[in-house]
């Protein structure tokens, strides 16, 4: 096996290189530098020397490893640490990010695929950066706000409607508007005061479907957001990201997420994570995110998902394992 002590990570974002080749290189690096992943993958029959290497065969580490171990390349120190929300130490994932530049590249590359940041005002209805330095989402929004080069871009104060003056200034600037927020936060904003953003605005919800009021289906949420912000449903987008991932997935004007070219998403059989579910079959979402090269790029999430024939996926909530124990009825399907 070729030894990789130092690695230039530019290849990760080079879409001229086949993803299979990039994944193989990252897999080889992981096996050599991540002792947790090395031990885990040793239990699966895959070798990077094998000519038949296929990224679909790469073992996916359960995401709770970010709670139960320190996932970082043995020769690296953390540049930033992201923590998931939660109360106890054991409830929170810790993502030790060895190279924040990788996160920046992942954020900006995928964002630019859909939006023109230089001509956009970013509003974030989330807690501000100073109150949440461990949140990867807030870090991302802070970066987008800074990179937008607009003084109008900002974290909005919580618990207040968007000021009319601000909206007027944005309109006057001629720039597009993108409002980020968790589902429940965006619904709060509408409750404060429905507004009409007009044609050049997009809403990006970042999750949080289980609102403090009631659980809402995604299709219903999209309708409510479109009406409440006065935009077409085609401009209601979703972002799927998490503390454990440096890359994000966007669903543009729909509930179907597309993948950045340096990632691979599959839906896995919860009873056998090596089996990839057929399109239409629900399972756990498995993610290869090469930007995670220094932590762990091969992750089996606990999210329930389903893939379509075109390689796009839907996020359906959390996968519950408790139905596998207990005296469950679960209407029989033969």
């Amino acid at each position: 096996m070729e030894s990789i002590d130092h690695i230039n990570t530019d290849f990760i974002f080079d879409d001229q290189i086949d993803l299979q080749i990039r994944a193989k290189k990252v897999f080889r690096y992981q096996v050599q530098h991540n002792p947790v992943y090395k031990i885990f993958s040793d239990h699966f029959s895959i070798t990077e020397d094998d000519d038949a290497f296929n990224l679909r065969d790469i073992p996916l580490l359960p995401i709770r490893a970010f709670k139960e171990s320190k996932l970082i390349s043995a020769d690296k120190d953390a540049d930033i640490i992201f923590k998931s929300s939660g109360t106890g130490v054991m409830d929170r994932s810790h993502h030790y990010v060895a190279d924040s530049m990788l996160y920046k590249r992942a954020i900006l590359s995928e964002f630019h695929r859909y939006f023109d940041l230089s001509n956009t005002v970013i509003l974030a209805y989330t807690p501000g950066y100073n109150e949440n330095k461990f949140s990867s989402l807030i870090w991302m929004l802070n970066l987008l706000i800074k990179k937008s080069m607009s003084k109008l871009s900002q974290f909005l104060p919580l618990g207040e409607p968007i000021e009319d003056d601000l909206l007027a200034e944005i309109e006057k600037s001629g720039k597009d508007l993108i409002l980020f927020g968790a589902a429940f936060g965006l619904l709060d904003l509408i409750d404060f005061k429905p507004v009409s953003f007009g044609a050049n605005a997009s809403i990006i919800e970042t999750g949080g479907m289980k609102t403090h009021r009631r659980e809402m289906k995604k299709s219903e949420l999209r309708e409510v957001l479109a009406e409440g912000f006065g935009v077409s449903a085609n401009y209601i987008h979703s972002e799927y990201g998490m503390c454990e991932l440096l890359s994000q997935f966007y669903a543009i004007g729909s509930e179907l997420f597309s993948t950045p070219h340096w990632t691979h998403v599959s839906v896995r059989d919860p009873k056998d994570s090596t089996r990839i579910c057929e399109p239409g079959e629900e399972g756990k979402i498995g993610i290869i995110d090469l930007a995670n090269i220094y932590s762990c790029p091969f992750i089996l999430t606990d999210d329930r998902g389903v893939m379509n024939e075109n390689g796009q996926f839907e996020v359906l909530g959390r996968w519950s394992s408790s139905e596998l124990r207990g005296c469950n009825f679960l209407i029989d399907v033969d």
């Binding site: 992943y37 239990h43 073992p59 580490l61 490893a65 171990s69 090596t274």
Partner: peptide, 17 residues
């Protein structure tokens, strides 16, 4: 048991459970 049990064993081994 399904294969996920052995995969869990591999995971436990990796994180030291």
């Amino acid at each position: 048991a399904p294969p996920s049990l052995y995969q869990r064993y591999a995971y436990n081994k990796a994180v030291g459970i």
